[in-house]
Structures are given as C-alpha cells and as structure tokens.
Design a protein around this nucleic acid. Structure first.
Lengths: 114, 114
DNA sequence: TCGTCACATAATAAAATGCTTATATGGTTG
DNA sequence: CAACCATATAAGCATTTTATTATGTGACGA
C-alpha cells in the first residue's frame, strides 16, 4: 500500500468540488451505491447537459469510474483515487446526509434501469 | 442545547468556503489556536486586502469571531456557529493537515503580536 | 494633534463557474 | 439501414470569484 501524498491545495480542490449542492449530493449518493447517469438527471432539477458537466468535473478530479452497459452508464467512486478514503469520512460529518441521500435515491424512479 | 438544523445546501456552502487553499489553511490554523490577522498576512503570499476579503467570507458565513486588542484583531472559530462542531472533524480528514498547520504557524514571525 | 499602524472597503479587471440551447456520438432496436 | 436512446460536447451568456491598487477608518503613541 502506497503512502497517500496530498498537500493542502489538493484537499482544497476536493472541498471545492464538494462545495456545490448538486455535486455533493451526487458524491453522497455514489458513496451509498453505484448510480446511473439517469439517476442524476432524474433527481436534480436541471438539464441533462448540466448534470453531464458536473460529472465531467468529478471525472477530471479522478473521483469516479464508469461502467457502460447497454444504453446506460453506471458511475462509482474511484477506488484508485487518493481521495477515495476521505469521502465517506467527509460525508459522515454532514448532519442528516443519510436522510438526504435516501430521499434522493427514492426519487430516482426509472424502472428500466438500475 | 438546540438541535442543529442543516440541509445539504448549507453543508455545500461550508465545503465551498473550505474549497480554497488560503481559507482552508486559515480555518485549520484557527482550529489550532486563536490567530491575529497579521498572522495571515505573514503566512500567505498575497496582499493584505486579499487576506481581508477571505476573512470577510468567513465572517459572512458566521464561521469566526473577533477580539480587538490595541492594534490587532484576533480571530477564532465561532463556537455559536452551526458549523463549529464539523470543522475539527473535517480538518482531521485532511492528510498531513497537522504538519501543514505547524509549518504555517511557524512562519508567522511577528514578535510584537500573538 | 498629527503621523503611523493594522485592518477594511471600494473600484476594477481577469478568470472561473454554472447554467442554457443546440448539436454530435455511439450503442441499440426494429 | 434508419430511427432512437442515453450521454457528451460546444457555444453562448450571466454571475461569481479572486486578485490588484487606491483609499478610508479608527486606535495608538510621540
């Protein structure tokens, strides 16, 4: 196991990515289970390209991995990321994150996916 | 003791404020000890007004309190803030935060203050 | 009382952010 | 092959962020 190398600037980059309600929710949801892109377009009240661009930021930071299957793209937190271990701990600090995630996941109502 | 009320949007606001290297460092330093504004102008390679504007954001979120004494303004994390309990936990998640804070505090080299 | 010190505020400019609509892409299905 | 579906990318735009320089303010000390 390699030693994690991270300076405070990289930590700030992670906080910055999490400093948006939509992305924080996405991360918290993926912390619970693998999610399809369509889950996110279902959950959040914004256009599909807006969701896609938030995902791009998560990808650029190396936070997520994808698995394509038929029509759908399934997203997970990237186990190889140096941030991977931090994420559950950061989410755990947020009061009522569990309830919020449960609510969001319940509102992903596609039957033909996920 | 009142129950903390916080939705995910407010948590995102906190992450956003911490999503800047300078402010994250300031918060981590104040998590260690009370700091003077001059500590920050010493530590960070930017103008005094830039430091002042970062502090304004921390104030606007209600994250800090001040104590004036002679020339100097001493800053602490605000115990009344709903975020107060979260901060040490969030800082604890950042690898090597301790070493970084120690380095920064060591570089605050005023002898007539703090 | 006048200059100085720590700090805040104003004004401004450059860059980044986050949305929108329109369009492209690549696998799927008929 | 052709239409379709999930998703990405491009382009445009308003807003926000973050720095800089210049200036204001109020406490302190000679």
């Amino acid at each position: 196991m390699e030693k994690i190398k991270m300076d405070i600037g990289q930590a700030a980059d992670l906080f910055k990515i999490m400093g948006d309600r939509t992305r924080l929710s996405m991360i918290a949801m993926m912390n619970e289970r693998e999610c399809c892109v369509c889950d996110f377009t279902d959950c959040f009240q914004m256009s599909q390209p807006a969701v896609s661009q938030h995902l791009k930021k998560l990808r650029t930071l190396g936070l997520i991995t994808e698995r394509k299957e038929g029509y759908w793209t399934h997203l997970s937190l990237n186990k190889e990321s140096p941030f991977y271990d931090m994420i559950p701990e950061l989410i755990a600090v947020v009061p009522d994150a569990d309830a919020h995630v449960a609510f969001l996941i319940a509102s992903c109502s596609r039957e033909d996916c996920c």
